[in-house]
Design a protein around this nucleic acid. Structure first.
Length: 810
RNA sequence: GCCGUGGUGGUGGAGUUGGUAGACACGAGGGACUUAAAAUCCCUUGGUAGAAAUACCGCGCGGGUUCAAAUCCCGCCCGCGGCACCA
């Protein structure tokens, strides 16, 4: 008799993987007779380090779901691919002088080997690679659609610049405000960059959330990120200048207390209105601000700093002169980059105290004690309240007053209602090599950016000698003059290619569409394929992607829908997310910490099935889980026991049918079926363990064993397949149908009830399931343990919660 | 700081339309088998007291609502994810 260990030692898992591949059982076509199911995971970035034990968590979970859906008769597409452009590969190339494309190819091969080792039911014939010109041809094509529809534009945007390395840095490459490689100083520099107008889709992206089944926190995060707010835009005239300062506010009820103005250091009017005697101070302040991140600038705890421009504005509500200051906590890209400042904002309040700027009040709290402190400027009162010092608006609540004040100021021609979004347009340029080239040519004669014609796509990356960005801030492509200098596709005159590349978000913003028809040369996918596969039925991914990637890809899909290229506005019907797998000790796994657990080692020691099942058993799927190899041992024992049951059911003295076992089995079918849908993999497995424990004492028949195997097969596909074959079947267990439970085995004859006296558990009683309320109460009150607590006291109330407990109050 | 999320035995966790806290697993202790070890199987295992029955305590901390709170409300503390050029 072969043991489970023999099976593993003889590479039994690999044998089945090869058989599945030969028989193409996971490859799918657009079968119109079957209901489709498209399960999506976030495709991995193929790093040089290979797969680590965190990757298999979402992959296995979706594999379990897809295997179950397949057994339920759906036409399941479970696709895989690689999101392979990106900084780490480029930095590796810079360090070693190797070509990023070559490194990427190796990494993808390694990832592919590892993923196949884990036995996922991917349709490998549809695998995509974002760095493949056949793929990014369409990334470029979609970008050109944005250009053609006026949703791409160039704008000066600050980039991080390392003064000593003389290259632009990603935010991640800045550690504590200094360059990660050399530790040198970093400053902000302006550079013209391609932008995508995602803000034009802000409302659509917000509304679309109402129609999809995303975990609630993902919706909340997206809504907060888009950050729609309704307020007013208000103009302030400047003494001695024609220009006006436009300010956005959601608290127009505080306009009567506005005593000063604060501009972002980058505000375009700063230079113009700064008086010469203030110039040095202002210039110094701007320089300092340019080295700080938004995070540092807006941190509430840090002491506020500011500088005075020397100019004054006029408050249109009160006529007061308002000194104009600059402060770095005001961000240029939010609202209008300017605020009116008053005593009802904590940051303004604090700043006014530091610089002795006069303050006024226009809102009072209802609480008199608090008002006493507010009145004396001891504390800031930023909440809404009742208006004071506000002319005809005195006595109104903030909410009543706001629309009235806007109307009043609008009549004066200085204010209007304004909807604002926190969402900003998307900086789409990178001064890097390893990304999709932006297929645009600048033509002096035409005086515009001209799109590379569709028939010339893909515009491939030229091979370069050096992958470092140039010290002018241009991408390495700028040094390739042969490549840069080209003909204008429109007029045929001299043109220069755009040398920036796309961010690595680009390839992942539409990849699920390519899975539907990955080899199409005529379109990113055929209409037939797009219509058949439609929306992604279930998309699972990391929490770290619930804002950016999810929003960007929804944006691309909505845009493609609007221009008639895809059938649905929303790409994903359902979105769930998983927690990270942390190293032992609760730290993040990383190469630098040397705490990475490699799945290769785990599969070699325990087998893919045990690894898969353990990863699903570790803990709640949507929460972080700490790796513990010892836990794998327990799961391996569980699989061993199931393997060994084979000898029991196949022996001469096979067990007789036992109604109790059958009842436990049907409870297990119900639990596993429901838990998989709710991502409760850990409890599904725990239930199967309970069942196996039960069976060890009470026996199991061959039919019952086969059902158990089917329930386990999504988690441990190799082992169950092998047992299935040895039971005499010559077709895959994958093609069997998912077990159904029968309600009649779920009903219990007797139930156990808890009896509480004054909220404390004092006894349990065994009663018939259909017992009447009166009988229950009588039984409960008659129980000796209950009598002990009730004797000599008044029974005030007896509560019976059906099927649960009896609560006696004395 | 802002947005989101979590905190339950020695450990991972189960249990949340309020209703028997600790399922399942790891670890630990004891036993069987073995010349021995490994593997396997059986028993015990939240804390304190007790031979036991049982009692008291116990879900980050402090309050509150309720016959009843891990679950609901208020106020804190701590961890994790995101914050727009990591993917």
């Amino acid at each position: 008799m072969t043991t489970y260990n023999d099976f593993l030692a003889k590479k039994g898992e690999k044998k089945w993987q090869e058989k599945w591949e030969d028989n193409k059982i996971y490859e799918v076509t657009e079968d119109k007779d079957k209901e489709k199911f498209l399960g999506l995971i976030e495709f991995p970035y193929p790093s040089g380090a290979g797969l680590h034990v965190g990757h298999p968590r979402p992959f296995t979970a979706m594999d379990v779901i897809c295997r179950k859906k397949r057994m339920e008769g759906k036409n399941v597409l479970y696709p895989i691919g690689f999101d392979a452009f990106g900084l780490p590969t480029e930095n590796f190339a810079i360090k070693t002088g190797r070509q990023p494309a070559e490194v990427t190819k190796e990494n993808i091969e390694n990832f592919t080997r590892q993923l196949k080792m884990l036995g996922y039911s991917f349709d490998w014939s549809r695998a995509v690679d974002t760095t493949d010109p056949k793929y990014f041809k369409w990334t470029q094509w979609i970008f050109l659609q944005f250009v053609k529809h006026g949703l791409a534009y160039k704008k000066n945007v600050p980039i991080n610049w390392c003064l000593s390395c003389k290259i632009g840095l990603a935010n991640e490459e800045i550690v504590n405000g200094a360059c990660e490689r050399c530790g040198g100083e970093v400053e902000k520099r302006n550079k013209a960059q391609w932008m995508l107008s995602i803000t034009k889709y802000a409302d659509k992206l917000l509304k679309g959330l109402d129609d999809v089944d995303f975990v609630e926190r993902a919706k909340t995060q997206q809504r907060n990120w888009i950050g729609k707010s309704e307020g007013a835009e208000l103009d302030f005239s400047i003494e001695g200048h024609e220009e006006k300062i436009s300010v956005y506010t959601t608290r127009i009820d505080t306009v009567f207390s506005g005593t000063f103005i604060i501009l972002a250091p980058e505000h375009p009017l700063v230079k113009k209105i700064t008086l010469s005697e203030q110039k040095n101070e202002i210039d110094l302040y701007i320089k300092k601000a340019s080295t700080k991140s938004d995070l540092e600038r807006t941190e509430l705890q840090k002491e506020k700093t500011a500088a005075f421009t020397g100019s004054y504005a006029i408050n249109p509500a009160t006529g007061d002169r308002m000194p104009i200051w600059i402060a770095d906590f005001v961000l240029a890209h939010y609202g209008t980059g300017a605020v009116f400042a008053d005593a009802h904002d904590e940051r303004d309040f604090e700043l006014a105290k530091i610089y002795n700027i006069p303050l006024k009040l226009s809102v009072r709290p209802k609480d008199d004690v608090l008002w006493g402190q507010v009145k004396n400027f001891e504390v800031c009162y930023p909440e809404k309240g009742i208006l004071i010092n506000s002319l005809q608006f005195d006595g109104l609540s903030s909410d009543e007053a706001m629309p009235k004040i806007i109307d009043w100021l609008a009549e004066k021609g200085v204010a209007k209602k304004q909807v604002n979004f926190r969402l900003r347009d998307w900086v789409f340029s990178r001064q890097r090599y390893w990304g999709e080239p932006i297929p645009l040519v600048w033509c002096d004669a035409c005086n515009e950016w001209v799109a590379v014609p569709d028939e010339e796509l893909p515009l491939e990356l030229p091979k370069v000698e050096k992958y470092e960005p140039t010290d002018t801030g241009e991408s390495p492509l700028a040094a390739m003059t042969d490549w840069v200098n080209t003909k204008c596709p429109k007029c045929g005159g001299a043109g220069k290619r755009e040398t920036d590349t796309m961010p690595n978000w680009a390839g992942s913003s539409w990849y699920w569409l390519r899975y539907m028809d990955p080899h199409n040369d005529e379109a990113f996918a055929s209409k037939e394929a797009l219509n058949y596969w439609g929306q992604v039925d279930w998309y699972n991914g990391g929490m770290e992607h619930t804002v950016l990637h999810l929003l960007y890809s929804r944006f691309w899909n909505q845009f493609l829908h609007k221009i008639g290229e895809v059938p649905h506005s929303e790409p994903y019907k359902k979105r769930t997310s998983h927690g990270m797998i942390l190293a032992e000790g609760g730290e993040k796994m990383s190469k630098s910490k040397g705490n990475v657990v490699n799945p290769d080692d785990m599969v070699a020691e325990f087998g893919a099935d045990a690894l898969r099942t353990y990863i699903m058993f570790m803990g709640p799927f949507d929460q972080d889980a700490e790796w513990n190899t010892k836990g794998l041992v327990g799961v391996k024992r569980f699989l061993d026991r199931i393997w060994n049951l084979k000898t029991v059911v196949c022996s001469e003295q096979a067990c007789l049918f036992n109604e109790k076992v059958e009842s436990e089995l049907h409870k297990t079918i119900k639990k596993v079926t429901e838990d998989i849908e709710d991502l409760g993999f850990n409890t599904a497995i725990a239930r199967m363990m309970e069942f196996v424990n039960f069976v060890q004492k009470n026996g199991i028949t061959k039919d019952q064993y086969e059902i158990l195997l089917k329930l386990l097969s999504p988690f441990a596909p190799h082992m169950t397949e092998d047992i299935w074959a040895s039971l005499g079947y010559d077709t895959s267990i994958t093609l069997e149908s998912w077990p159904k439970y029968d309600e009649k085995f779920l009903v219990e004859d007797t139930i156990t009830l808890a009896v509480q006296v004054n909220g404390k558990l004092r006894a349990t009683i065994e009663v018939a399931a259909d017992i009447s309320e009166d009988d229950v109460k009588e039984l409960a009150l008659g129980h000796e343990n209950v009598l002990k607590w009730v004797e000599g006291k008044d029974v005030k109330k007896v509560i019976y919660v059906k099927g649960r407990l009896v609560s006696v109050v004395v």
